[in-house]
């Protein structure tokens, strides 16, 4: 909990668009530079992750992640309404899975073609 309780506008929707891992991100702002919609702004503190200012303008192209020199620094945060919509059924076991579920199945490690 923050030390003070602030007067703030409601959180935007979607809340984030993307999330930064401060352990990996070096604040190089390569993502800020390339974003077609200027969703992120450089952090006033140097070497800190950018600030997502306009998440509702993100069109989820993934360009920020492709541009990032440090894999894992940025994760895409689709809105919960979209995560809850993507469901799949494992044919053999009959198990249901969805994006962002609490105990996800093992990742599929096969890279894309090419």
């Amino acid at each position: 909990m923050p030390e003070k309780i602030y007067m703030l506008p409601n959180p935007p929707t979607p809340n984030k668009g993307m999330k930064f891992n401060p352990e990996i991100c070096t604040g190089c702002n390569a993502c800020v530079e390339v974003c077609p919609d200027d969703v992120m702004m450089p952090n006033p503190e140097k070497k800190k992750p950018p600030i997502v200012l306009y998440p509702e303008e993100c069109w989820f192209c993934g360009g920020c992640i492709e541009e990032c020199p440090r894999p894992g620094a940025i994760s895409m945060m689709h809105p919960a309404s979209q995560n809850i919509s993507v469901n799949w059924l494992r044919k053999k076991t009959g198990e249901y899975f969805r994006l962002n579920q609490k105990n996800p199945p093992a990742p599929n490690l096969r890279p894309p073609s090419g």
């Binding site: 989820f60 192209c61 993934g62 992640i65 492709e66 990742p107």
Partner: peptide, 12 residues
């Protein structure tokens, strides 16, 4: 690539 293939694969 990132929004679908990468994200879905990581999610299993």
């Amino acid at each position: 690539r990132i929004p679908i293939y990468d994200r879905f694969s990581k999610a299993g």
